[in-house]
Amino acid sequence: MAQKLIDGVRVKQLKVIPDERGRLMEMLRRDDEVFLEFGQTYLTTMYPGVTKAWHYHKLQHDNFVCVRGMIKLVLFDERDGSPTRGTVNEFFLGDHNAQLVVIPPNVWHGFKNIGETESLIVNIVTKPYDYQSPDEYRLPAHENHIPYDWARKDG
């Protein structure tokens, strides 16, 4: 059953083109329907079992792609007036699901490495990082008001 996406969240299925030399995967193009603007690109990594959460931005959109490993990306909409206020979205990204997820401003998000190797995540943001006045607001991963438990769900 497909989950109802938080208002403003976009998902792009990525095309992986393999050959005898390796593979190619386009992540984001300026002529993509989901493209807004370019600020900068960065790479973040996580060791197995690590959770990096929670944060949001007031100005920038994030465009997350996990290029190695597997992560669970979780979003929470706490925006006043949002038609999806209170909604939680889960995405499983990486080696077994090549997707780009666009996260709009003011949506809490975090991710957990659910694989057995270091995960590599590329983020293509719409605003460059401002070292003097960072557009980043944080909560602890596990002790907070967000209705989400990072524990594995066996079902």
Rank of each mutant, 00 (worst) to 15 (best):
E33H: 08
M70Y: 03
D62P: 02
F35Y: 14
R21N: 08
T44F: 01
R138Q: 13
D19Q: 04
H109Q: 08
E78M: 10
D77G: 05
V50E: 12
T44M: 05
M25R: 12
E20V: 12
A2E: 15
R30P: 10
K52P: 02
G49P: 05
F76H: 12
P83S: 09
Q132I: 08
N97Y: 00
G69N: 07
G115A: 12
N97L: 02
N89F: 03
D149F: 01
K4A: 15
P48F: 09
I17K: 06
V88G: 02
N63M: 08
K4I: 13
N113A: 07
V101H: 00
G86P: 09
D62T: 03
R23S: 14
P128C: 12
I146H: 09
V65L: 00
Q40H: 11
P18F: 03
M27T: 14
D19R: 05
S119H: 02
H61W: 14
S119P: 02
K15W: 01
Q40G: 06
L36T: 15
F111D: 06
E136K: 14
H145F: 15
G94I: 05
P104H: 10
Y137N: 04
L14H: 09
V34A: 13
A98G: 02
H145E: 14
H61F: 14
R29Y: 05
E116T: 14
K58L: 09
R10T: 06
H55Y: 07
R23W: 11
V107A: 03
